[in-house]
Design a protein around this nucleic acid. Structure first.
Lengths: 164, 164
DNA sequence: GGTTCTAGAACC
DNA sequence: GGTTCTAGAACC
């Protein structure tokens, strides 16, 4: 278990995040029902994963963690197409989307990389983004509508297996 | 007490903040030992003053609260001239400085105003800042050195009277 | 005027 | 590559 913790610490941000989303059992961080976005409970996440006494990330600051998400291209999901878990009863839960950060898709994970000031190393990501954006979002909206009809509290995507 | 709460809600940010710094008894927010900066315990402050069930500010988000501080010209105090309370034993305590936000100086409070994109309404503040900056900081460093020698835990400036 | 999301820049 | 502080911009 101690060794496990050391492995986590040494990983890069996207890999570390993917691992944590899959292993967390408390709802601090989890996949949305579709498995294509991440649901983050700021309050729980701070307590469980940003505790300075047990450092997993180098910061204990939720703001710095959000900055990392943005630097890696995650975007907040707002407005009508949020996961139904993000409602007024769960004010601390926020949803983040990255085209290439999805449950069961470790094959895409290499495309999640840090945005740099100048030219990005994630060339492939840039190229494919515009082509995928349109249809994906459409599909997402339809499935979200269905979800809203049948949603039960705490329904969220359960990963089938851990690939790391 | 309920009425009191309504009054707080209707105040502008600097006045509201000044009031809270003076009335808070828990250490969530308080004056530094000198009374010229504000010590903010993110964790306690979130619980006590950003609770969505008892809204004082319109946000329950500590990040938005910090954005307000910055918009009004508060700056984080970093490096060696921090108040001794801001140490590794108090990881949630952060210190903020505004030239015109000080204990017992309500006469300066009108100069604490929102930075706008273009021209600021706080013309007087702009003019006096450069003249005051040098000597004030020097004095501050000396007194901080003394404080470091004699510092006792939880020592902080106690306001003499509430002027609102 | 207040809130939110994201990014710039400097630093480690 | 990660962290921190601050600001831009859009929105309410």
């Amino acid at each position: 278990m101690f060794e496990e913790h050391c492995v986590l610490q040494s990983m890069r941000f996207p890999q570390k995040l993917w691992r944590i989303v899959n292993e967390c059992q408390t709802g601090a961080i989890r996949w949305s029902a579709n498995g294509d976005t991440v649901l983050l409970d700021y309050k729980k996440f701070q307590t469980e994963y940003l505790d300075a006494r047990r450092p997993i990330f180098k910061t204990s600051n939720i703001t710095s963690f959000i900055r990392q998400l943005n630097l890696y291209g995650f975007r907040k999901v707002t407005s009508h197409n949020r996961d139904p878990v993000c409602n007024s009863y769960n004010p601390h839960v926020h949803e983040f989307l990255h085209e290439n950060f999805r449950a069961d898709r470790t094959d895409l994970l290499f495309k999640v990389c840090r945005k740099t000031g100048g030219k990005s190393k994630c060339l492939q990501q840039e190229i494919t983004r515009s082509a995928e954006e349109g249809p994906r979002l459409q599909t997402n909206c339809v499935s979200r509508l269905k979800l809203c009809q049948v949603h039960l509290p705490n329904t969220s995507y359960k990963p089938k297996e851990f690939l790391f």
